[in-house]
Design a protein around this nucleic acid. Structure first.
Lengths: 410, 410
DNA sequence: AGGCAGTGTGCGGAATTCCGCACACTATCT
DNA sequence: AGATAGTGTGCGGAATTCCGCACACTGCCT
């Protein structure tokens, strides 16, 4: 929360008194005795507001107002004067001052103006930040879903990791999207156009590690599930990191590495070289408010892929999502989104992805294609059958098989 | 720019005088003589501020303040009183009033407060809009692919159309994604959370148009292929647009409307009301450099949806893409991407998306499921059959039907 | 009221798919 | 070399689906 106030007054006693008033209100005064002093603090994006006397030797408050507007037109400036009159006040507002108060100024008159100025400034700065995110096609914003504070923190970690050239260790539960986050880190790095190579750490030999490094030269090599890396390879990677190469290493693990470190199964040398930066992907259970947000986005994606309209996500659908556990995290949610789009019933407990036989899967697909055709033709069976190049009878037989009724699509 | 002021005062003379003051300042006063009258105008997202007397029969200004804060806590309320005192002013600010002024109120004192309240409101509304856009992760960047300058121009048009509240006409070749772009325009509008309804214009009656408008109230109604709209409905829609309603119209056409206008088959009145903003989707033939970019993204999406690794897109693959025409535009490219991921052969000429009957689509799906199972089991037919819960014989029969050979998966 | 178009379904023959069986062949291991 | 496991396929009966036909019913229009 923005609390800074740049307090400009040539009279030291006034400066001090006002400063204390501000501090009592939990604000952060930043004192300046002249325009020259104040000028150095005024920058675009200044996270606060300006409170300035008008009558000052040299450059007065009006000049400071003009100067500030050149630097950052949306930076609020509140002017104070001991000898104000109506014409002066009018002039100040015309020139864009946020407020104009007369000295001596009662706290009850001053504080509300400052508070409102700070709130306005906070909105302005937040709008700028939001616009910047939108306008740059920020991969973190675009590819890492979720509106919770935890998701925002994850995106910040990813941006920071992307901006750095250091090794990164990415942790998260199975299905959390470690591989995808690694790719986003790479996309946000200066080496985004260079290669990004993925390899499972399990079974990785020194030779295949070196080959992968060469393949990723100038870019990044992502090693998945580093806990499973053979000991020999661990030493080879540690040596390689000591030498320093042209390839950035990004490591991922969905298991806690601490027990492996303690048991001597994972090299501390390697661990500390990889753990230069840490990105931790929170599980969905830690941020349940993201479930509907992410689900909506996965549904939009799935609908697009399937060439089907996205079904309405009712509050009931959301409630059922929230009522379930998601140990499979983002991947499970994604699969559920596809089933939802295809009109498949919510799977029974235990009916996990891939457990269905071919016949069942085909039945689900056929059912969804029939439903989609009916939807497209607003329940007109003949037209729907025609669009599927089916005889009417066959079409009706299939509807009967799946319990679909044209009336339900009208 | 937000200029509306909801002016609440029981005294008609005061209301009128203040109203004129506001009009002289280029504001738009909306007059109400009581809380009851005012209440109907106060909605979340109200695009203006409230200026209200305190002393009123029935519910007073404080009550209106409370009510407003329940409806939209960030909607500024400025209170006026003819008999104010310090305690009352303090109470008003404590309860969240944006300003507190005494009557009779000089314009020079009132206008700055109103202007600041309006600016604050504008910031708040923009902040909300930006957040909504971010929550969907800039739909223009995420959903409209292509790295060419033409694609960027398209995204800019879409963002601009999204930000406006005007009607939009979207043009593009068949398969260019008119419907999808319409949805993105909606997603980027302030009404993103409101309904988005799609209807084909062909065969649209006045009644079904009105029903659709009602269904989309507060949101947007997309009318596809407006060239095919019946003349009667064209008049109905024109009338509806003249009245102005709570639903935004977005029109799409894949055919040039000019000949229809010249032939008198499409109403110029309607055309000019729809064509307030124009979004033109360039055909792939105009931006061939986007073909590989879009194909890569569609392949990534398809792979993610299918739960399969994305096959390598070799230069040969790219060359074959570039060597073909894409009269089906984005939709055709998307289908090709899915086939590519599923390991299907390139389709025969003329085999456009949507032209397949149910049997053919089911065959494609079955073939892809068989191939995926073989891939998962590295060509081991018995294991693959088991995973699909199929007898070996049946599995082999199906492979034969589709020309799949386990050897090709080892 | 009558005509017409569309809907929904039972019957039954044709067509297709399913799938067990048995066998020859191949690859791998001891 | 021999044993074993897995692969791939023809045959043929069973099971299932396809689908034309005819009919009764419904909704809409004149």
């Amino acid at each position: 929360m923005i609390r800074r106030v740049l307090l400009v007054d040539d009279d030291a006693a006034v400066r001090e008194a006002l400063g204390q008033t501000l501090e009592l209100a939990d604000l952060t005064p930043q004192r300046a005795g002249s325009f020259i002093e104040a000028k150095d603090h005024i920058a675009p994006g200044f996270e606060g507001v300006i409170l300035s006397d008008i009558r000052m030797p040299g450059r007065d408050g009006f000049h400071l107002l003009s100067y500030t507007q050149e630097v950052d037109p949306e930076l609020p400036v509140i002017l104070l004067t001991g000898e104000g009159d109506i014409p002066m006040a009018v002039e100040a507002m015309k020139q864009g001052a946020f407020g104009f108060l007369e000295k001596p100024c009662a706290s009850a008159d001053l504080m509300p103006v400052i508070e409102r100025a700070l709130k306005t400034r906070a909105l302005v700065l937040e709008n700028r930040r939001l616009k910047a995110q939108l306008e740059t096609g920020d991969p973190a914003a675009r590819l890492i879903f979720g509106s919770s504070e935890m998701s925002e923190r994850l995106r910040e970690q990813v941006r920071r990791a992307g901006a750095a050239r250091a090794e990164v260790l990415i942790t998260g539960a199975p299905g959390a999207g470690i591989s995808k986050v690694a790719e986003v880190v790479h996309l946000m790095s200066a080496a985004a156009r260079r290669p990004f190579v993925k390899r499972p750490a399990a079974g990785l030999t020194r030779e295949s590690f070196e080959a992968a490094c060469h393949e990723a030269e100038g870019g990044a090599l992502f090693l998945d599930e580093v806990a499973a890396m053979p000991r020999d390879t661990q030493f080879a990677v540690t040596e390689w990191l000591e030498q320093g190469g042209g390839t950035r290493l990004i490591a991922g693990t969905s298991t806690d590495l601490a027990p492996k470190l303690e048991a001597g199964e994972f090299s501390p040398d390697l661990f500390y070289r990889l753990d230069v930066m840490r990105v931790r992907i929170p599980a969905l259970s830690e941020r349940p408010e993201d479930i509907p947000v992410m689900f909506r986005q996965y549904v939009a994606q799935a609908a697009e892929q399937a060439g089907l309209p996205a079904p309405e996500i009712t509050e009931e659908v959301v409630a059922r999502l929230m009522a379930r556990d998601w140990p499979g995290n983002a991947r499970a949610l994604m699969s559920e989104a596809m089933r939802f789009v295809l009109g498949m019933n919510a799977p029974e407990a235990g009916d996990a992805e891939g457990d269905l036989g071919l016949a069942e899967q085909m039945a689900q697909v056929e059912r969804s294609l029939l439903a989609a055709a009916l939807r497209r033709h607003e329940g007109h069976a003949s037209a729907a059958a025609l669009s599927l190049k089916l005889p009417r009878k066959t079409f009706y037989d299939k509807l009967a098989r799946y319990g679909l009724r044209p009336d339900d699509f009208r």
